[in-house]
C-alpha cells in the first residue's frame, strides 16, 4: 500500500459484498414478472395461434437477429409492431436458460456490489424464464471456487434454494487467481440462451464469445452482461458522490491488492473512459461475430431495467 493512503482491507470489502436477496427484492421480483406477463400476453396471443397450427407448443417471442431463418419470423407481429420478432416454440423439452455468474473477487466492488447486482439480475432472468415455461440453470463458484455448482430453477418453488445458493457465495474465499472463464469451461447441456454475468475484466473477448457459443450451440442465443460499479463506469462520479477532491483516491485491486494512484487530471479520466469504451467495443464485436448480444449494467441501477431489455429475447 502506498504511503498516505488510508487503510483498507480487501477482506472487509469482500465480506460486505455478500449477496442478500431479501423480501424487498422478492417483492420487486414479483412485480417485475407480473409486468412481463402483461407484456407477454399481448405478444404471445399471436404467436401461440400460429404455433398451434404447426402442432408445436408456442413459448413466446424474441427479437429477430440477422442471419436467422426468415420462416421463423412472426410476420403478423411485424405488421402490428413494425419490429421483427421470432417465434419461440417448444420442442421435446423445456428450453434452458444457462447463466454463468462471475465469482471473482473483483465482483465485490461497488455499492451495492457487482455480485449483488449480478445475483439480482440472474434471479430476475431465471424467474422470467420459469414463468415462460423454461428452466434456468445458474453456474457459479462455490465454497471458495474449489468447486463449481449448478443451481436450477425449474419452478417458482425452487426460488428458495436458488437464493440460498446465491447468498452462500463468499468472495473472500475465492482465490485471487481464480478467473470466471473457468465457469465457461464447465460442461452444460445445449441451452436455448446462454447468459454470462461478469465485469469481464479478466476475460478475453474472443475466447469468451466462442466459449459461450459452444455452450449455446448453433441455435442458442448468447448474451453477455457486463456489470461494473458506478465508479468503474465513470470515475468522475466519485467527485459528485461526496469525495473531497477528484484527485483524492487510489484504486485498490481486491484480487492482487495492488494500488494505482490516481492524479485526478481530467485528461486521465477521459483516457480511462475511452479505454473502457474500447474494452466494451471489443466484447461487442466479438459477440457480434458469434451472433451474441452485449448488455451493460451498473451495480447501483435497478435490475428491472436491464432484465426487461433482455427478457424479450428469452424463451
Amino acid at each position: 500500500m502506498k504511503p498516505g493512503a488510508e487503510k483498507l482491507v480487501p477482506e472487509s470489502v469482500l465480506a460486505a459484498a455478500r449477496v442478500h436477496l431479501g423480501r424487498d427484492f422478492l417483492a420487486r421480483l414479483e412485480r417485475h414478472v407480473a409486468r412481463l406477463r402483461l407484456l407477454g400476453s399481448r405478444l404471445d396471443s399471436i404467436g401461440a395461434f400460429q404455433a398451434r397450427r404447426k402442432g408445436l407448443e408456442f413459448l413466446g417471442h424474441r427479437p429477430y437477429q440477422a442471419g436467422e431463418d426468415a420462416r421463423d419470423l412472426d410476420w403478423s407481429l411485424l405488421a402490428r409492431l413494425d419490429q421483427p420478432f421470432v417465434r419461440v416454440l417448444r420442442g421435446q423439452g423445456r428450453p434452458l436458460l444457462w447463466m454463468a455468474l462471475d465469482g471473482s473477487r473483483s465482483m465485490g466492488v461497488g455499492r451495492p456490489s457487482k455480485l449483488q447486482a449480478a445475483a439480482e439480475l440472474a434471479t430476475a432472468l431465471g424467474f422470467a424464464a420459469v414463468s415462460g415455461g423454461g428452466v434456468a440453470q445458474l453456474v457459479a463458484p462455490q465454497n471458495g471456487a474449489r468447486s463449481i455448482t449448478r443451481t436450477t430453477l425449474g419452478a417458482p418453488r425452487d426460488l428458495g434454494p436458488w437464493t440460498q445458493a446465491l447468498e452462500s457465495l463468499d468472495l473472500a474465499r475465492t482465490p485471487p487467481s481464480w478467473s470466471s472463464v473457468q465457469l465457461l469451461e464447465a460442461p452444460a447441456a445445449s441451452a436455448a440462451q446462454v447468459v454470462f454475468l461478469s465485469d469481464l475484466m479478466d476475460a478475453d473477448p474472443d475466447a469468451t464469445a466462442l466459449a459461450l457459443r459452444r455452450i449455446a450451440g448453433r441455435s442458442g442465443e448468447v448474451c453477455v452482461v457486463q456489470i461494473l460499479a458506478r465508479e468503474e463506469w465513470d470515475p468522475r462520479s466519485l467527485s459528485s458522490a461526496g469525495h473531497a477532491a477528484a484527485s483524492a483516491w487510489s484504486w485498490l485491486d481486491l484480487e492482487t491488492r495492488e494500488v494505482c494512484a490516481h492524479d485526478g487530471s481530467p485528461s486521465r479520466l477521459e483516457a480511462y473512459v475511452r479505454l473502457l469504451a474500447r474494452h466494451r467495443a471489443a466484447f461487442e464485436a466479438a459477440l457480434a461475430r458469434v451472433g451474441g448480444r452485449f448488455f451493460s449494467h451498473s451495480s447501483d441501477s435497478d435490475f428491472e431495467r436491464t432484465a426487461c431489455r433482455m427478457t424479450s429475447s428469452l424463451p
Binding site: V109, E232, L252, D253, D263
Partner: peptide, 26 residues
C-alpha cells in the same frame, strides 16, 4: 498538496495500469 489518497476498490485496475504505463503522470 494532494490529500492522502482514499482507497477505492476497483475491478478495472488493469485499465488504470495501462494508463499509468502510457502516460507519465507520476
Amino acid at each position: 498538496r494532494v490529500p492522502a489518497a482514499r482507497l477505492v476498490p476497483s475491478g478495472t485496475l488493469g485499465l488504470w495500469k495501462q494508463l499509468s504505463s502510457s502516460t507519465s503522470q507520476r
